[in-house]
Design a protein around this nucleic acid. Structure first.
Lengths: 230, 230
DNA sequence: GATTCTAATATTGCATACAATTCATGTATT
DNA sequence: AATACATGAATTGTATGCAATATTAGAATC
């Protein structure tokens, strides 16, 4: 999917991951120079990555003023969560019409993974929780639906970074289990209801508290995200 | 929304419009040099536009081989139409829960416009038909839903360019009128049913015939799309 | 005549240079 | 002290140059 430049992808991917995992907090400036130095590429490639992230809503580019991590408003947050409800409802609907065998197998494998790291590795836990929803979408077999869900889950992570207090909005593993169970029974109505409740819970926990936190050196954060090839 | 470069926007927009209106047909090469000359900008800005269009699925960039108008497969076509059904169902659902007054007014104004050019200006007719769906989405007040619909309507146009025989897949104005009427009554079920049938009709007419047609000079086509500022 | 190889051409990938704009700092004025 | 202004530093916007890759054309071989 990301075909514009092989060498710009690591920049894009690292920035994206750092934003999703809330290491780069909303509002943090993303200067082309320093990011380029971090990854050993020129501003050209950094800019490509930033433009892409801007299109995805994770980064905000302002003319002549550069890029920074997007700061979704509370209105945008509600808008995005509503859209997420719509998309994930569609995912549930489709999955419940499919042969459950391989789906359930894949989901249970993922759930086991989630269970394994629960309480041990917070960051990985959050990442796996998000990936559960992406996996659901991918299992529908719809490329475009999976893309949309992937994108919107990222944006929800950003919203959590902005509005939720730390860890208050993690996905519950038991709730995931319940959703799997409904899909296994092919019970679309229940699956949709449970997913709805699940997402509603995340949203409610998220959209209550104001933000906090301070800045940190961008290069330092990114160096933790730079892959071995960088 | 397109903040990465003011001067690259016209390139992006013209290419996009040309693709949507099927002047640039699927598979046509889009060389950076010649496009840049057409618009009087450097390859840098052309590339920005192409990358963006690639992200939106209208253009296909292959490493070291450049960009060309995307050629969606028949499988992707079905996937995209299914997604469109999902999104526009959501639009109907939301509109029917809102105060109908201003919505109906805006829709009727648009319909009058569609009616006026019917049979006179084919290109404009097609454009207006697409914009009807975008207008519906915008009237929901959801930024992200409107964006998604906008994007997917574009991709459907591309699909029509690839698979439908000319003009076989235009939206019917009467069908639009019926949808408006259902919204006016706040009858979500009917509105959804009608929209579904409407889109189904477009899809069925589209996904039957193979492609045809031949190439034409890219610069010549684009010069027709270049705005007065170019 | 078809096919492979090779040289020439064209195109893309990326870095860099320079201009334009914004931002930061310090000075002058009130 | 606060504001306005001016100057220099930093950052972005864009074009261009060079290397790398792909494409084309032509010659040579079968």
């Amino acid at each position: 999917m990301y075909k514009s430049s092989k060498r710009s992808f690591p920049v894009y991917d690292s920035l994206r991951q750092a934003i999703i995992e809330q290491a780069l907090k909303p509002g943090v400036k993303l200067p082309e120079d320093s990011i380029g130095e971090t990854f050993g590429v020129s501003r050209t490639l950094v800019r490509n990555a930033l433009v892409r992230l801007d299109a995805e809503g994770l980064v905000d580019i302002q003319p002549n003023r550069g890029a920074s991590v997007a700061e979704p408003t509370i209105e945008e947050a509600y808008d995005i969560f509503d859209m997420r409800q719509c998309l994930e409802r569609e995912v549930m609907h489709r999955l419940c019409q499919m042969e459950p065998g391989p789906i359930i197998k894949a989901l249970k494998a993922h759930l086991a993974e989630e269970d394994k790291v629960l309480g041990k590795d917070g960051t990985r836990s959050i990442r796996l929780a998000g990936e559960f929803h992406i996996l659901l979408a991918e299992l529908t077999g719809s490329q475009i639906l999976a893309n949309y869900v992937n994108e919107i889950v990222s944006r929800c992570s950003l919203i959590l970074a902005r509005f939720a207090q730390a860890h208050s909005a993690e996905c519950g593993v038991e709730e995931h289990a319940e959703i799997i169970e409904a899909i296994a029974r092919g019970d679309a109505e229940h699956a949709i209801t449970r997913m709805h409740g699940h997402l509603r819970g995340v949203q409610d926990r998220a959209l209550l508290n104001p933000e906090d936190e301070r800045e940190e050196n961008v290069a330092a954060i990114l160096s933790r995200y730079r892959g071995p090839g960088g």
